Simulated assay, not measured.
Amino acid sequence: MNWLERWQAPRSSTWLLLRPGHGQAAWNWLHLADGRREAGEGAPPSPGGARVALILPGNHCSHSQLAAPPGLKRDEWPLLLEERLLQPAESIRCGCISRQGNQLELVSVDQALLSQWLSQCADWGLSVERCWAEFQLLADTPAGTALCWQRSPDLLLLKGVTELSRPHWLAWPTLLGSNLPAPWPSLQSETFGGAWPARLAALELLPSLFDLRPARQMRLCLPSAPGQWRLIAACVLLGLLWSGLWLTQQWRQSEVYKAQVVALTGPAASPRQAAQLLKRQRQAEEDRQLRLRQIEQLQTAMQQWLQAQPAWHISASSFDGLRWTLQLRGDQPPEAATWEAIAQRVGVPVAVAGDEDQLQLVFDLGAAS
């Protein structure tokens, strides 16, 4: 076998998967070799030439799909998740499993936990090459479907894709009951159980969340035949041409992304500032959508009350973006607890003023956001 054949030869497809738990006794491992599977708990066996992968437990990692401003560096990804996870950016380790345009699909884990798990692997004398989230072990499903993995009696892991082709992950403690949140009830699901999935995704093709391999000295066997030198020169030239085309395309695409971010946020002094502006805009949009839903709920509740009280009607209504003000006219004013009950149902405070036949209600939606 010459040097080119050795370089093209496929790597070993044997794997040792390690999933940490609370303490050494709770670790699970799965050894895959020559189509055979061997699983166990506690300290793993010697890998025997197998590639070692650390599997992040589904209930200890977070999955997000977010827009990233152009120029945002890998070590700045946690800034996008700081408010969502309610953790300082420096305590989060982020990995990217897919990127479509400026949309990043990120998986995050607590840095202290990750360090603790890697330290345990080092104590066992294992060199971890790959790091995957537990959900990545599940095969991809078509839009509108989901996989439900009953990994243990107290934990259900769900991976699915909505009709809009948006991926979703969920680690659901069974003590919360069987009423899953949206969008899971609308997805056609396949349920299975066991410590490990019976059918795994193609491990060789899974993107690793973090590059955990130690630096190695690459040894190159230099060719001696003139034809091999010409082949190397041709490969280098093609690589340089491809790199130039790729850099040109990336530069053009970066300019497009920058223009899109400026259109949304205005000029920004740095990628970090642009990311913070995007987060504020996203939060403002989420607050606006929340207030619209609260308005709809209040309108429904007031309509039901007015149908039951024909002697009363709304004489005026206004909304300034934070407060919804109603002027009511009628006979026999209801008890103040009526308005408190309606407001508590939506989760907002209410102020009541007026006399017996004319009332003013002010629902403060800004106080709830």
Rank of each mutant, 00 (worst) to 15 (best):
W117C: 07
A171G: 07
D110P: 01
R36Y: 02
H22V: 09
W196F: 08
W196C: 08
Q281K: 09
S208P: 01
I55T: 09
W132C: 05
G160I: 01
Q65W: 05
L237V: 02
H60W: 01
W27N: 11
P226N: 05
L72A: 06
G239A: 06
W29I: 00
D320Y: 03
E38T: 02
N28S: 14
L264W: 04
T162K: 12
L30I: 03
T248F: 05
Q188S: 15
L247G: 04
E134M: 00
A274R: 05
L187K: 13
Q24D: 14
W229A: 13
L322E: 15
A133M: 01
H22Y: 02
L298P: 08
L4K: 07
A146H: 08
E38N: 00
W324D: 10
A225L: 08
V109N: 10
R74C: 01
R151E: 08
R219S: 10
L138F: 03
L206H: 05
F363L: 00
G193V: 00
A274T: 00
L79D: 08
L18N: 04
Q150T: 01
Q253L: 09
E340D: 11
Y257H: 14
I55N: 12
T191R: 14
E285M: 10
A269Q: 13
F319W: 14
W251T: 14
G194S: 12
Q294T: 00
L220R: 10
S119E: 15
W172C: 07
Q100D: 12
P45V: 00
C61V: 03
Q116G: 06
S127P: 04
W29G: 09
L137Q: 07
G58N: 06
Y257D: 14
P173V: 02
W184C: 13
S243Q: 15
D154I: 01
A368Q: 12
E340R: 13
P214Q: 02
Q87R: 15
L138K: 11
D357W: 02
G160S: 05
T14R: 14
W172Q: 11
R93F: 00
Q294E: 11
F192P: 12
P173G: 11
R84F: 00
A336N: 10
A182E: 15
Q253D: 15
P57N: 11
P267G: 06
S315Y: 00
R213W: 03
W117E: 12
E296N: 08
W124M: 01
L106R: 03
W27S: 11
N179A: 14
S119L: 11
L298A: 07
G48R: 02
L203A: 08
L180Q: 12
V362D: 11
Q294Y: 01
R130D: 14
L72Q: 06
W29Q: 06
L209S: 07
G125C: 05
L306F: 02
A195C: 04
Q304R: 14
V236S: 14
L222F: 03
A275L: 07
W149D: 09
P70S: 08
E5Q: 15
A198V: 04
R288T: 10
Q332M: 04
A25C: 04
P271R: 12
Q303D: 07
W324K: 12
T174S: 13
P197E: 06
S98W: 03
G330R: 09
A9L: 10
Q327N: 10
T145E: 13
D140G: 10
A275T: 03
A367N: 08
Q150M: 09
